[in-house]
């Protein structure tokens, strides 16, 4: 046992002898207490009328202009509890898309984020790169050179600024293209 311990101590490297401090602990926020919903007839009727009016207005807006808005793909973090999220809104008949993301880690020097389309039997398609500021948010619009419906996943990865166009394998968000 003692020899084993000495051997194990001698085998430790600089990182084990001088460990780096861990990142600070982030606890999830405590769940909010739910308020009981009490339905009162008159306020409920008034609210229903307002919602009806807003709904009708909303429908007019949604169908005006360039036509119906395209569908959206929701991206979720690959690491459970990571807290990031994003939504890719398709537009222009599937010729362009807008990614709106939040909760991402601010970009570090020498790194950027990249948006991809993935499919089992084809090369990945890089749609565009972006950086994230201190607020953890990003909004980018990208052209779509291919139809997303031909791909299975939308993916956001962290890429080192090393000139290598391949996927780094460090995916942070992913959504299924249904």
């Amino acid at each position: 046992m003692s020899d084993q311990l000495l051997t194990r101590l001698e085998a430790l490297g600089p990182d084990e002898w001088h460990p780096e401090p861990p990142p600070p602990l982030r606890l999830p926020p405590a769940p909010r207490r739910r308020r009981a919903l009490v339905l009162r007839p008159l306020p409920a009727l008034a609210t229903a009328l307002v919602l009806l009016a807003l709904g009708a207005g909303g429908a007019l807006v949604a169908t005006s202009g360039d036509g119906p808005r395209g569908r959206a793909i929701t991206l979720a973090p690959l690491v459970r509890g990571a807290g990031a999220e994003a939504r890719l809104q398709l537009a222009g008949g599937g010729r362009r898309a807008t990614l709106v993301a939040s909760g991402l880690r601010p970009s570090r020097r020498g790194e950027f984020y990249e948006l991809w389309l993935l499919r089992p039997d084809a090369e990945l398609v890089a749609l565009g790169s972006f950086r994230v500021g201190a607020d953890g948010r990003a909004r980018i619009q990208v052209p779509l050179p291919v139809s997303p419906s031909e791909y299975r996943f939308v993916d956001v990865s962290v890429e080192p600024d090393d000139g290598d166009p391949a996927h780094s394998t460090r995916s942070v968000l992913r959504g299924r293209v249904d």
């Binding site: 861990p22 509890g81 570090r108 790194e111 962290v158």
Partner: peptide, 18 residues
Amino acid sequence: RDSWAAEDVAQQVFLEVW
């Protein structure tokens, strides 16, 4: 072999402990 991923997964470990 990735400090960034290690930070996220470490957070996930302590979330699971919690």
